[in-house]
Design a binder for these strands. Structure first.
Length: 346
DNA sequence: GGATCCTTCTTCTTCTTC
């Protein structure tokens, strides 16, 4: 078992034991009080002490205990088992965690006067010219895809095989296409709503409210509370390219979130993602876009912050994960490592 | 018109009592 896995296990054991001991002491107190003050019959005394616990009150606590349970299925054990079924996992050497060249996130040559970045005007939308730079300038998605850790690849492949076993090849294909379709529709719907947020009151004119496909209504409801805090949209679905580092991508949105200029990435998810760590490589993607935008002559401002919004189909409130400038800088370094890895493999 | 590109997602938990 690797050191970081061991540390994670130890941390979870500590968390679990803390929660369990707390619950246990409360249950004991509750049980003592119940039995000493009530006139219960001997037969009822024998009933489980759990019956005296307010299960509704402690349901979330119970969930937190079981969700932090240390699984016997560590990656190493799973790999061992799966190696017997699927064959060995090909491992590559662990990449260095520090980039060889620490390129700056902010372009000091392109710092603008405050007045130059005033709000106003239509948001930038630079369409990707298809076929241009083909093969020579890689995209953010491609780089992240091709430099995933063996562990990440293992879990994804394992999930894919499990899904195919459940749905069949065709069923899985349809399922995946549907996920992509929903994601695209959601993006389109958000974009159609966004310009309204530049007004004093978002969506004040009901006649201007665009049609939202019924399949993404839940997602839209999910992000409603986030959109209320978005103002001053400056770019939508716009191409960004890092001129020195030679990569490109399409940024979902650049806008003020609670007054802070951010690169915003809209995501749909079937599973709840309450923590930033649940979003896998998404923060790296955002940091890559921030760096590219700051080094692209088509944009006359610099961005230091990020926002990842995870929306849910059932309409439950989306999780907005803000990335401070310090966090963006950290993910920027991790992105540089991945970029170097990609370049070295070419 | 056809081919290609960038995205769109997917992972890191499944307990066993009442």
């Amino acid at each position: 078992m690797r050191l970081h896995q061991l540390l994670r296990c130890a941390q979870r054991v500590e968390e679990s034991s803390r929660v369990v001991s707390g619950l246990f002491s409360h249950c004991t107190r509750t049980s003592v009080n119940t039995f000493s003050t009530s006139n219960v019959s001997p037969a009822r005394k024998k009933s489980s002490p759990y019956s005296s616990v307010d299960s509704g009150r402690y349901s979330s606590l119970f969930k937190s205990v079981v969700s932090h349970r240390v699984s016997a299925q560590t990656p190493d054990i799973l790999e061992e088992q799966d190696a017997q079924i699927y064959g060995p996992v090909i491992k590559s050497p662990t990449p260095s965690k520090v980039p060889k060249i620490l390129h700056p996130l902010i372009n000091q040559d392109r710092l603008f006067e405050f007045g130059e970045t005033e709000l106003g005007g239509a948001p930038t939308r630079i369409i990707l010219r298809r076929g241009q730079d083909r093969g020579s300038v890689p995209s953010v998605t491609r780089i992240l895809q091709e430099t995933m850790s063996p562990e990440q690849q293992f879990y994804l492949e394992r999930w894919r095989r499990k899904m195919i076993a459940q749905l069949g090849e065709d069923g899985f294909k349809e399922y995946s296409q549907n996920l992509f379709r929903q994601g695209k529709l959601f993006h389109t719907a958000v974009e159609s709503v966004l310009p309204l947020t530049t007004k004093e009151v978002p969506g004040e004119d009901p006649e201007e409210a665009p049609e939202v496909p019924s399949s993404v209504e839940g997602y839209m409801e999910s992000v409603r509370h986030v959109l209320e805090d978005v103002r001053g949209v400056r770019a939508i679905e716009s191409r960004v390219q890092h001129e020195k580092l030679g990569y490109l991508g399409i940024v979902d949105c650049v806008a003020l979130y609670r007054g802070v200029l951010c690169v915003i990435d809209w995501k749909t998810s079937e599973r709840s993602k309450p923590f930033l760590s649940n979003t896998y490589d998404n923060p790296l993607q955002v940091a890559a876009y921030v760096g590219a935008l700051n080094n692209d002559v088509n944009y006359n401002y610099q961005v230091e912050n990020g926002l990842i919004v995870v929306a849910y189909k059932d309409g439950s409130p989306a999780h907005p994960h803000t990335l401070s400038s310090e966090q963006v800088l950290q993910y920027w370094e991790r992105w540089l490592v991945r970029l170097e890895e990609y370049t070295e493999r070419r």
